[in-house]
Design a protein around this nucleic acid. Structure first.
Lengths: 185, 185
DNA sequence: ACCTGAACACCGTTCAAGT
DNA sequence: ACCTGAACACCGTTCAAGT
């Protein structure tokens, strides 16, 4: 059976590989999802993946970019809700991706490309969080430290699953603390 | 050359394997430190490791227990210093182990043994942090959420390296926030 | 340009065999 | 009880060869 009947398949096949990789990375984890499995699910041979992507880390980055873009457009949807609701929504949405958070941290030291992606991601996330905190009335002097705390707590909630009540309590306390305390001396 | 001249070598050889594994896990990372490398550094054959340890995850857990015991005895040394100093000290001490933090998170889903260790560790850490917060005058009602925030921030500081000034600022703000805010309604 | 079959060097783990 | 040499099934990656 001929595999590429039309020349336009070019971008299509890349998408098929990407979709297969995304599903397996999320469901089975980056380690367990072998290149062989990904190839099989995409209907190609292993080596074909290497025609479209430099290596497995490059494939990971492409998946991450895909997921990030999707998350950002969805985040814009609820830009008008209060800070606490927005944070809880973000945690709920990203929770299924918690494995990828660890994967990025694990691969970053070994792969310069993943390291660069991780740095860029945190610059973006920090900017978003800082903006939110400023709008919520946080003291300017403490903003960098506050942003770090906010980011760390969100990441903690992603990687250490808690039930809904616990998540709500942690986020409520966080928002309350970060926005109502008077500036320190 | 005869390798085990004395029968007392039993526990000694186990320690040699453990020491080699600890060094390589910390310096090269869990993934990069192959069983072959560990065996070579311990002066044994690969299969010998499997006589003393069930598998690589079991070896990891033995290393973690070793490091945890060491950290706890050292932590007791500075039990009288103020909370902020103690937290900063903990972050500085554990910073070189940040790779293992990710490793535990990565292996936990696949290995029930690592998962159990991770759960036990957080119970212990949460108890320590909760105790500290209570002594520092934290409101009782918010204690679980406060403890979670404290743990998440410490873990965040471990896995996302910051310079000394940033670390100090984050911890100072955290301690200030968690101990001086009046109870919420 | 695109895709493959076959190989490469490596991995964690196991097994039959030795003392 | 303790340790080994040799094998097993797998991994990510590469290469020469095809269209």
């Amino acid at each position: 059976m001929p595999r590429n009947r039309r020349p336009q398949d070019r971008e299509e096949k890349r998408e098929e590989i990407l979709a297969a990789a995304q599903r397996l990375f999320i469901d089975d984890g980056y380690e367990s999802a072998s290149m062989g499995q990904i190839a099989k699910h995409a209907g190609v041979t292993v080596n074909t993946i290497y025609w479209y992507f430099r290596d497995k880390d490059d494939l990971l980055i492409a998946v991450l970019d895909r997921l990030l873009a999707e998350a950002l457009t969805q985040y814009a949807t609820i830009a008008d809700r209060p800070l606490g609701d927005r944070l809880l929504w973000a945690v709920d949405q990203l929770e299924r991706l918690h494995g990828l958070v660890n994967t990025v941290h694990t691969r970053a030291p070994a792969s310069p490309a993943v390291h660069a992606w991780h740095t860029g991601f945190h610059e973006l996330a920090d900017a978003l969080v800082a903006d939110d905190l400023r709008n919520a009335g946080a003291a300017d002097a403490d903003l960098p430290a506050m942003t770090a705390i906010g980011t760390f707590v969100i990441e903690g909630l992603l990687t250490h699953r808690r039930d809904d009540a616990d998540k709500r309590a942690v986020i409520d306390l966080l928002v309350h603390q970060l926005t109502t305390v008077p500036t320190r001396t």
